[in-house]
Design a protein around this nucleic acid. Sequence first.
DNA 1: CGAAAACATCCGTATTTTCCACAAATTTCA
DNA 2: TGAAATTTGTGGAAAATACGGATGTTTTCG
Lengths: 199, 199
Amino acid sequence: MKIKVLLVDDHCLVMDGIRQLLERELDLEVVGAVSSPTDLEQKIAQHQPDIIVMDIRFKGKNGLLWTRKISSLFPACKVVILSRSHCLEYMNAAYEAGAYAFVSKQDSVETLIHAIRESHRGVKSFPTHLVFHDRSSLTEMELAVLELIAQDKTNIEISEQLNISKRTVEHHVSSILRKLDVKSRAGAVGKAIELGLFG
Amino acid sequence: MKIKVLLVDDHCLVMDGIRQLLERELDLEVVGAVSSPTDLEQKIAQHQPDIIVMDIRFKGKNGLLWTRKISSLFPACKVVILSRSHCLEYMNAAYEAGAYAFVSKQDSVETLIHAIRESHRGVKSFPTHLVFHDRSSLTEMELAVLELIAQDKTNIEISEQLNISKRTVEHHVSSILRKLDVKSRAGAVGKAIELGLFG
DNA sequence: CGAAAACATCCGTATTTTCCACAAATTTCA
DNA sequence: TGAAATTTGTGGAAAATACGGATGTTTTCG
C-alpha cells in the first residue's frame, strides 16, 4: 500500500515539480495537487490522503490555520509544512499547530521524502530541538495578521479573510505593535522583515 | 543543439522540481542549478547557458540586481524571471533590468517552457502590454519617504526629518501608493522590500 | 491538582493618522 | 521652453490607534 500524498500550494509550477519528484519514489502516490481552499476539503474527503504537504502560506492565509482545521477534522491526515526558510517562529508555530514535520524549500528532496515517511510512521521530524525552548514572540494568529498587513490588507479585509471580527483584528494589531515596539503597521512590516519573521 | 538552461533559486526543492519538469522536454538541457552567488558566476562561465531562470528573490537580495549584472557581463545569456505573483511593478522592474520574460510560479509549466523557447528565439514575452505605459519608478524623494515609512515614522515625523511640510509628505506618499499599486503604507513597505527597493 | 498567565474573542468611545480629490507655484534639467 | 520633480495647500472621508472593559479557553508551572 502506497503512502497517499496530497499537495497544497498556491504555486502550480512548484507543485507540479514536487509532484514529479515524489512520484519517482515507489512507496509514494500523489493523489492530488490543490491550489484552492474549496478543493482542499473536497480532495481530502475524496482521497483520504495519509500525508498533506502544505505550503505555510496558502491563499493569503496562514497555512497553519488550515493545519489546525485538518488535524481536528481529519485526524488521520498528517500535515507536513513547507516553508521558504528555517524560521524559529514558524517551526514553533507549525509544531504547535499539530504538524508532523517542517521542511524548508531550501532543503533537499530527500529531506522532504524522509519527512513524509517518518510522518507516515507517526514520528514527528523537526530540524532542531532548540526550537521549542526559544519562545515565539508573536502568536500564530498575530503572524497571520501581520502577513496580511504586509500584503496591503485593511483590518476589515483581514477580518473577512480570517473569519474574525474587526475588533479582534484590531486587538491583534495592537499586540503586534506592542511586541515589535513600533507604532504603525508599516513599521511593523519593516521590522518583521528585518527580523525574518516571514518564511 | 539543445537550449542550455541554468536555474537560479534559493530553494533547492523547487529548483529540483522545475529541473525535472524541464528535462522532460527534448529541446531543453538543464546544465546546472545554483543557490549561491559565487556558484552563479562560475556556472555561467563554465556552461555558457542560453537561458537563466532566476527567482526574483535570490539570497535575500533582489534577483533583478543579478539580472542587470548578468545582462552586462554575459550578453548572450537571456534571463527569465520567476516570481511568486503577477505584479505590474515586478514585471516592469524585470523588463527594465533586461529580462526576456516574466513567469509566475502560479503559472503552468507550459508557460515557463514557452517563455524559455521564446526568449531563446530572442523574443521577449511579458504577460501584458499595458505594463509599460502607466508607470514610472520612484523618485529619490519618494524613496526617502518610503524608507522612513518602513522605519515606523508618521508623516509629520517624516516632514520634520526631511524639512518639508506635512502636505508634501502626503503627496509623496500618495504617489508612492499609486506607483506601487497598493492602498496602504504597510502594503507599500511589503512590496518595496520584495522589489528590493531598499538595500 | 489548582492558580496564574497568556491567548483569542468581542464591544464602545475618542483621537490621531492616513488617504483622496481637487489645484497650483517653484525649481531643476534636458 | 517644456517635462518632470518638488513643493504647498483645502477639505473631507476612511482607517488606524489608544484608552477603557468583558468572557472563555488553553498553557504553564508550583
